[in-house]
Design a protein around this nucleic acid. Structure first.
Length: 433
RNA sequence: GGGGGAGUACCAGAGCGGUCAAAUGGGGCAGACUGUAAAUCUGUUGGCGCAGCCUUCGGAGGUUCGAAUCCUUCCUCCCCCA
């Protein structure tokens, strides 16, 4: 094997736990491994990125990655964590999502080459949909005791009195269905390893256990988990005010995507750069060292943001995101904004929320609160607009405004744009047409 | 089948006839300080024509001058016994 996979993940801080013998197996021969992804949307978000990077490294180390779309399991809902009831996806949605996800996965994994370790995409709906209930409980359920299933943390937590939520039989069954996936892949794809987040440990080991009990002791399967990605301040990773950070540029603009990474705290950036970039160890270590001595340069965040953005959106989009960030957060002034030609302006603000407003309304409306709220949709309510203006948090074209400010045509950039800023980081472009 | 408990703002969780747009904590947002960081401090966190008014405390009715608080009923969830 060209590179030691476990060693690679280890220095990157991507190993939480692994079953004994995993490393030996991987050093012995090319091995197939899979991770599961719920096809609940037609795009991946950055919460999926860790799993994907695991597969990416896996492939780079000469092994064969399998991405499993959880069409069947996604309908059930994993009791680990506090998942809500899942909606059943109809088959056409499922297939649509699967296709979209595959395109995104192809940004990272090689599905096309002739190499023996090319990536594969499977969907457990394909082997679960016709599996009858009786057949399943007889063939599979027989091999796992309820006692074993009850001892899993995810189950214990839900059954404990404090949780106060109970657990349906459907959810209880989840680990068995996921365990069967592993068995199926083990038998039909020679897949010997399942990877996932630390919260998946219980589900994965149900699979290894099932394989051992059903197929006998000489059939050994392995588990490897990575730590759940956290933020130093305890918040949820990958969420912003507006929700998930998606890989699909239509859902999260490349600019917003770039900004997400740029805004990481120092502590998080040191962790994330190891996990989410492919930079090698010496590069990363020297970057971290440089950052610690001159933190204000934000070199670490900048590298992290550009590496990940390039990987997901490509060089051209990265350029635009960097330019936009430079203009919006550099020491920009009103004069500088006025100097931008229309094309530049539009490309800079491509990633910024925009709204349209008619010229007539703009000219007629003399109340800035009305203009920005009722017509412009910049604020959710007039109360909010007033409150923020009192707090000196609202700027138009980089200049603070108050409730008394009267809108006029002097505000227009290039005759038709108004740049509204809420606080330091939130921009909104009004297009007057 | 029997018994008990609970549903309050983004979440957790007080309130149990008026002084409640609803304590407190968390989260969010903003300001100061900075490095588009962290920590800290401060303000704010239903809406509006904003010293006033309107809509909110699972749903629908009712009692009352007045209800998140009392009654009826429906829905949902949890726990215990069988």
């Amino acid at each position: 094997m060209p590179k030691n996979f476990v060693e690679e993940l280890r220095w990157r801080g991507m190993i939480h736990d692994l079953t004994p013998g995993t490393e030996e197996q991987l050093n012995k021969e090319m091995t197939a491994a899979y991770v599961g992804i719920d096809p609940t949307a037609d795009s991946l978000h950055i919460g999926h990125l860790v799993s994907i990077m695991m597969l990416k490294h896996f492939q780079l180390c000469g092994h064969k990655p399998i991405a499993l779309i959880g069409g069947a399991t996604g309908m059930i809902g994993d009791p680990s964590g506090k998942s809500q009831e899942r909606n059943l996806l109809d088959e056409s949605t499922l297939r649509h999502n699967q296709e979209c996800l595959k395109k995104q996965l192809a940004l990272f994994l090689d599905f096309e080459s002739d190499a023996s370790n090319k990536a594969e995409l499977v969907n457990n709906y394909d082997w679960m949909k016709d599996y009858g209930f009786l057949a399943f409980i007889r063939d599979i359920g027989k091999h796992i005791t309820v006692n074993y299933m009850m001892s899993k943390d995810s189950v214990k937590k839900r059954l404990s009195a404090e949780s106060g939520s109970g657990m349906s039989f459907t959810e209880f069954t989840y680990q068995l269905v996921q365990g069967y996936d592993f068995l199926h892949l083990f038998q039909h794809h020679s897949c010997k390893l399942q990877m996932g987040g630390a919260d998946q440990w219980g589900n994965i080991t149900t699979g290894t256990e099932l394989i051992r009990r059903k197929l006998g002791h000489e059939n050994e399967a392995f588990a490897l988990t990575c730590p759940l990605i956290t933020k130093a301040d305890g918040g949820k990773f990958g969420k912003t005010e507006t929700g998930n950070v998606w890989l699909d540029p239509a859902k999260t603009t490349p600019y917003a995507f770039y900004q997400f990474w740029l805004n990481c705290s120092d502590e998080d950036a040191e962790k994330y750069i190891r996990i989410f970039t492919l930079l090698d160890r010496t590069t990363i270590e020297s970057l971290i060292e440089a950052h610690r001595s001159e933190p204000h340069l934000r070199q670490l965040q900048k590298t992290l943001a550009s590496e990940v953005t390039r990987m997901v959106h490509g060089e051209a989009e990265l350029q635009k995101a960097e330019d936009a960030s430079q203009i919006l957060f550099g020491k920009g002034t009103t004069e500088m904004l006025r100097k931008l030609d229309e094309a530049t302006l539009l490309s800079v603000f491509a990633g910024v929320p925009q709204s349209q407003i008619s010229k007539e309304i703009f000219q007629a409306e003399k109340d800035i609160v009305e203009l920005l709220t009722t017509h412009g949709g910049v604020f959710a309510s007039k109360s909010e607009a007033r409150r923020l203006m009192k707090e000196n948090a609202v700027s138009v074209n980089k200049e603070k405004v108050s409730e008394q400010t009267r809108p006029d045509s002097q505000m227009l950039l290039n005759g038709k744009y108004v740049l509204v800023q809420k606080g330091k980081k939130h921009y909104h472009l009004l297009v007057v047409a």
